[in-house]
Design a protein around this nucleic acid. Structure first.
Lengths: 319, 319
DNA sequence: TTGAAAGCGCTAACAT
DNA sequence: ATGTTAGCGCTTTCAA
C-alpha cells in the first residue's frame, strides 16, 4: 500500500503539499497538483481512512444500540436512522445487545474510546443514571422519553396514546379487554404506561389474568388470546404490543371462531392486510429526529405523537 | 481526555510499560501494573479506539452493502450477519446504496482505504468484473452466485428452485401462471433465472403479459394480479418474488373474489398467517455463511439449497 | 522487568 | 505556492 510519503517521494514534493492536493484544500499550483494526481494514480494510492480519523479526531460513524435486528420495531428505526445518516455523510454501526447490559456497557465504553461520534439507543438495558455517565464522551440520543434526565430523545408518549385507545374502547362500550406487553412492568416503561393508562381510564386496575407479559412473537399472541379467553370468556378486545402479536391473536381467533376487536401497533403491513386497527407510532419520524438530535448543542426532547388508525376486521364466517 | 502519555507521566513509567499493563501482554511487575491501573482509574483513562486501529492495521469492522434497509430479504441477512459478527468480535456497518452504483463504488473505495476489514454484498449495482478489482484490498463476499469469478459467495440456486417450483405446478396441471420479479431481466440475474426456469419446464417462453417487472411492494403485487387477470382470465397461479408481493396478490384476490394458487418466497410471517406456499431460501444460513467466508483463505462458493413449503389457502367464501 | 524510540498515515499550524 | 514540523494515541521492536 502506497502512503502519502511515497507520493511525496515520487513527486519530489512534501507530504503536506500532497495532502493539500489530495484534499483540494489550501494552495497548490495546478501543475503541482496534476503531477501529484498522476503519482496517486500511478501508485494506486488511497488516503488511509483510519489515519484520517485519528488525525481529525472524528469517525463520521454513529453506533446504534438495539437488542437484536429481528423485530419490526427496530427495522423501522434502523431504516430511518441509516437513511438520515447516509444523507448527512455518516455511517451507522449496528450494535445488537440481546438485552445484555454488559454488552451495552461495552458499547458505551467504545463511545468513550472514540469509536463513534455518537450513540443512539433504540432500547436499553441500563438505567438512565448509568448511561448518563457517558454523555461527556459523546452525544447520546434515546428513542424513548428520558424524562428529567439530561439526555436528548425523540419519543412517543405511550401513556397518552394508550389512554386514548382505552377511552376509545370504553366509549364503544367495551369493558373486557386483554393487554399484551413485551416485557414485564418492572423492566419496561412501556408496560408500566399501559397498565397506568388502563387504570386511569377504567378506574380500576387491569386484572392480572388480562395482562400477558413477554409477548414477543405471533405465537405469544395466540397464547395470550387463549389465556385471556380461558380467564374471561366474555372478552371483547385485545390491545397488543405490536401488529405481529395482534396477528397471532387474529390467527387464534380464526382458528377458534371467535370475534374480537383487535388493536396492534406500528401500522405494519400485516395490519393493513388483515385489516385490524393499529396505533401508528411514526417510528420513521422518531428515527430521523433521533439522528438529527445528535448534533444539537443542547439537550432536546421531541415528542412524536401517535396516530390511531381505525380498521374493521371482516366479520367471521365459516369456510 | 487522558492519553497513555498522561498515565506514563503520572506513574513515572514509560508509555510502553503502560501499554503492556493495559493490554495484559508482555512482562509487567505486579506492583507496577497495580500502580498503573490505579492511575488509569484516577485519570479516567481509556485507550483510543482509532489509535489502536491505526497501529494494528485492523478495524474489526465489516461493511454490509445493501440497497436500503427496508426489505425483508435484507432484514434477514442483516440479522444473521450481525449475529455472526457479534459472536466473532466484529461490528457491522450498514452501507445502503439505494441501488446507486456510485455510492457502491464509494464503499469499495472505503474498503481500499482500510475503513473495513471486509465487505459483504447482499446486492450489487456494479459488475463482478468491477467489484473484483477491489478484492486485493480486503476480503469480499457476495450473497449471490459469483459463477466463474474468483469471489467467495453463499448463495441459493435460484434457477433450480424456480424450476422445481414450476415442475410442481406443471404436475398439478397448471398451465397459466403469472410471475413477478423485482427488477427487470437485464439487470437482475434472479429475473433471468425465473424466465429461464419457466422456459425449461414448460418448453415455451413466458408470455410477456404474464411477467410483471419491478415488483417491490404489496401494492405492486396487487397491480400485477390485476394485469395478469386482465391479460389471461383463466390464470391459475402466481409465483411472486417475495411473500410481501404474494400478500398483495392475496389482497387483490380477496377483493375480487378470485381463487389463485399463490407462491411467495422466504417464509415470512405473512405467508404463515395467510397460509400460502413459499420458497424458503434460508437467508439466515446464507448470512452467517457469508460472514464466515470472509475469513477463509481461499475463495469458496457455498450453495444453500432452498426448500419448498407447501401450504393451502382456505377456499374462498363470501362474508 | 522496563524504557527509548521508531513507526502507523495523516492533518494542520506555521514558516518560508 | 510550498515545505517543515509537530502532533493524533497507540503498538512493538529492540536494547538495557
Amino acid at each position: 500500500m502506497a502512503t502519502i510519503r511515497d507520493i511525496a517521494r515520487l513527486t519530489g514534493h512534501s507530504i503536506s503539499t500532497v495532502s493539500r492536493a489530495i484534499n483540494h484544500s489550501g494552495y497548490v499550483a495546478p501543475e503541482t497538483k496534476a503531477k501529484i494526481m498522476a503519482a496517486v494514480k500511478k501508485l494506486d494510492y488511497r488516503p488511509n481512512h483510519i489515519a484520517r480519523e485519528l488525525s481529525s479526531g472524528r469517525t463520521h460513524r454513529i453506533g446504534l444500540i438495539l437488542p437484536s435486528a429481528n423485530h419490526p420495531f427496530f427495522h423501522r428505526l434502523v431504516n430511518s436512522i441509516s437513511a438520515a445518516a447516509l444523507s448527512a455523510g455518516y455511517e451507522v454501526v449496528l450494535l445488537p445487545t440481546n438485552y445484555n447490559r454488559h454488552v451495552e456497557v461495552d458499547r458505551l465504553e467504545e463511545l468513550r474510546a472514540h469509536a463513534f461520534d455518537g450513540l443512539i439507543f433504540t432500547s436499553r438495558s441500563n438505567s438512565f443514571d448509568f448511561i448518563m455517565q457517558y454523555a461527556d464522551y459523546g452525544p447520546i440520543v434515546c428513542c424513548e422519553n428520558t424524562r428529567h434526565y439530561p439526555l436528548s430523545c425523540a419519543y412517543k408518549n405511550r401513556e397518552n396514546s394508550f389512554q386514548k385507545t382505552f377511552q376509545r374502547l370504553k366509549a364503544k362500550g367495551y369493558r373486557k379487554i386483554g393487554v399484551t406487553v413485551s416485557r414485564n412492568e418492572y423492566v419496561s416503561a412501556s408496560a408500566q404506561a399501559t397498565i397506568r393508562a388502563y387504570q386511569r381510564v377504567f378506574g380500576l386496575p387491569l386484572k392480572d389474568e388480562l395482562l400477558f407479559r413477554d409477548a414477543l412473537t405471533p405465537f405469544d399472541g395466540a397464547t395470550a388470546a387463549g389465556e385471556f379467553l380461558a380467564a374471561e370468556p366474555g372478552l371483547e378486545a385485545i390491545l397488543a404490543n405490536s401488529d405481529e402479536i395482534a396477528a397471532g391473536v387474529y390467527q387464534y381467533c380464526q382458528h377458534h371462531q371467535r370475534q374480537l376487536t383487535l388493536i396492534g401497533q406500528d401500522n405494519e403491513l400485516i395490519s393493513q392486510l388483515l385489516n385490524f386497527s393499529t396505533i401508528d407510532n411514526h417510528l420513521n419520524d422518531i428515527g430521523s429526529i433521533a439522528f438529527s438530535l445528535l448534533f444539537e448543542k443542547e439537550v432536546k426532547k421531541v415528542l412524536v405523537p401517535a396516530t390511531f388508525i381505525e380498521r374493521h376486521l371482516p366479520s367471521l364466517h365459516q369456510a
